[in-house]
Simulated scan of single mutants.
Amino acid sequence: MIEVTASLLGRSVFLAGETVKCQITFTNVCRTNRQSSPTKARPATLAWASAQIHCQCNVTEGRVAIHPPTQLTTAQVTTSGNDTAFVPFRGERGSTVLSTRPSILFCDLTLAPGESHTCVYQESLPLDAPPSFRGSAVKYSYKLTIGTQRFSCATKLLRVPFRVFVLPGLNDLTVYSEPEELKPNNPFQTNPQTENSLLDIALEVLQTMTCRKGPSFYNITNSHGRVARFCLFKQAYRIGDDIVGTCDFTEATVPCVQFSVTLQSEEQVAEDCQCKPGQSSTVTSYSKTQELCIHTSKTHINIAIPLTATPAFITDIVCLRWHLHFEFVTCKTPLPQMTIPDNPSKAASLQGPAQLDVDTMVWDLPIRVFATNPVYASSVSLLRTDTSCCV
């Protein structure tokens, strides 16, 4: 019996354009029991082994309609009745939207009892690849599939799932590289300077897009007057960042009892893929904060973007956007004022009213959410970087 073990090198989260590396080991395992002895073990031979990366797209039929279909379904691609061919997406649900060229690892490999053979498979992800996403209408999932076959046996498939981020602006890397005449020339340097990898350039681009701080102020009003003034220190964030803002009630003319802020993502299906005209989008809530602000002059909010979330993106089928959802509970009548005694040594107390005539208003503030360092996302990923099977 041959045991096949596949392990992703480094991490389980990658940026589109990066190279995925996987170490694959084939071992002739000797198992003994009462009826057999290790001396009877024989060499085992594998006819071939191949590896390939593919992305599957699953859609909800009640929400997404693709006419005509732009991708072939797995049932259409799979060769009927042929279980010896290498079809990496055999048995998978949905359509294959991305598939790299299959790479042959070896042919006609014979392993003695206890002997192992290790090879490294690597493949670059296309820059225009869709991101990993698990939504209510659309799901994109990536897998690296290893296929192998023994003579006169069916093909065995081993799959290793991983996650993919997409960062806009990496289609032309020459924009971020310095011209030859502007590069520093050090005559005392013995080792030539190496070019930055795609990950280094992507992190620089990501830092540039999300580090700019420009406070934006918003006057929140309703039909009765001014409720609050909200300040957001920047508009672009990475998953894992904290969204910090302040609420100022000093110049408010409408008393606010309490307010809540919820971080939400909105999944909108493209118009030509909607089952019904004007189909509503799907909103998913994440972090939430709530503040009681009666007689409050200023307060702040701090909302974390989880590392497990998907950054904003757009494909031919779906678009994912992010926003902050505000809910303000305001009074229709002025609140009773607190009487402050003239003598500071005297104490004063205020008892809140038993009933309040309130009104609720909502407001959505769009924000931009980008990817983050895939190393950080891998630290909280639940995807296993290694798996094994027996042939």
Rank of each mutant, 00 (worst) to 15 (best):
Y142K: 01
K143L: 02
K143C: 03
L144R: 01
L144F: 11
L144P: 07
T145M: 06
T145V: 09
T145W: 05
I146F: 13
G147D: 07
G147T: 11
T148Q: 09
Q149L: 08
Q149S: 08
Q149G: 01
R150G: 11
R150S: 04
S152Y: 13
S152H: 11
S152M: 14
A154W: 08
T155E: 10
T155V: 12
T155S: 08
K156N: 09
L157N: 08
L158S: 07
L158K: 06
L158M: 07
R159I: 07
R159D: 03
F162W: 11
F162D: 10
R163M: 04
R163P: 00
V164E: 00
V164N: 04
F165E: 15
F165Y: 15
V166E: 03
L167R: 08
L167Y: 08
L167A: 08
P168E: 04
G169N: 06
D172K: 03
T174P: 02
T174A: 03
T174I: 02
T174V: 06
V175S: 01
V175W: 00
V175E: 00
Y176W: 14
Y176A: 02
Y176H: 08
S177T: 15
S177G: 06
S177A: 05
E178L: 14
E178N: 06
E178S: 12
E180R: 05
E181A: 11
E181N: 13
E181W: 12
L182R: 14
K183T: 12
P184R: 00
P184G: 03
P184F: 04
N185W: 11
N186C: 08
N186A: 10
N186R: 09
N186P: 00
N186Q: 05
N186Y: 13
F188Y: 15
Q189A: 12
T190M: 06
T190F: 13
T190R: 03
N191P: 04
P192M: 05
P192L: 06
P192V: 15
Q193N: 10
T194M: 12
T194Q: 14
T194I: 14
T194H: 10
E195K: 15
E195Q: 14
S197L: 13
L199P: 01
D200H: 10
I201D: 06
A202I: 11
A202V: 09
A202E: 04
E204R: 03
V205N: 02
M209G: 03
M209A: 11
T210L: 00
C211M: 06
R212H: 15
R212S: 12
K213M: 07
K213Q: 14
K213I: 13
K213T: 15
G214T: 13
P215S: 09
S216Y: 05
F217R: 11
F217N: 04
F217Q: 12
F217A: 04
Y218H: 09
N219I: 05
N219P: 02
N219R: 09
H224W: 06
G225Y: 07
G225H: 09
V227Y: 12
A228P: 00
A228S: 10
R229E: 10
R229A: 03
F230W: 03
C231G: 00
L232K: 05
F233Y: 11
F233R: 01
F233T: 10
Q235M: 10
Q235C: 02
A236K: 14
A236W: 10
R238N: 08
R238V: 02
I239Y: 13
I239D: 02
G240T: 01
G240W: 06
D241F: 03
D241C: 03
D241E: 07
I243V: 15
V244W: 07
G245D: 14
T246Q: 05
T246V: 10
C247A: 15
